[in-house]
Amino acid sequence: MSDPVQRIAAFVDDLLRNRRPRRFGASAEEMEALQAAVELRTAQPGADLPDRDFIDRLGRQLRSRMEPKHQPIGVTRRTLLRTAGLAAAAGVAGAVIDRTIVSQPAGGQATLTPDSGSWRPVAALADVPAGQALRFSSGSVEGVLVNDGGTIKAVSAVCTHQGCLLRLDATAHRLRCPCHPTVFALTGKVVSSHLPVPPATLPAVQARVRDGQIEVLVV
């Protein structure tokens, strides 16, 4: 392009059409004009909002990059094995839940094991497709069912901070506390918390499938 007027005109055209602008070595004067054009472009209401597809796509790309080092969303076989090991180490049988939660190792998970519990159906298996989660209430226990590739797991939906009932964010695979900004993964693990001391991992609830029904061990 021949001169600053043409270069800046082409740059503005590209901005207004949401195209990647052509590159060129800009003088100090041209740089001022470029940045003024960018500022005016951004002043259009909503122009700076990202495409939701882009945010989702980048999230997936990051997940594939980060997976080898970090635990992904959802329940993995490794998580299940580790959880089972920690629960066993904590002495699951006959454990008193309150004490278990307080004394558990960092990141460990207690399992809710009532003294005189019984298996109660809380949902049809068909209501919880693979990769999905569903809130349930048995009357005495509030929880969430998770279908991890055909394996049904359940976790308490009562915040371990002050007992508020957690909200299921099915899209993000998260449980969110409405009382204080704390977020749990569907494994029960604390994902983020604005509390000075993050609360304990949510207790697991024992679950099984019988005749197409999901049952949980509760009182």
Partner: peptide, 12 residues
């Protein structure tokens, strides 16, 4: 205040 991120997905 002790607010922490414990996983990258929440950060994102």
């Amino acid at each position: 205040e002790g607010s922490v991120y414990t996983d990258w997905e929440t950060i994102y």
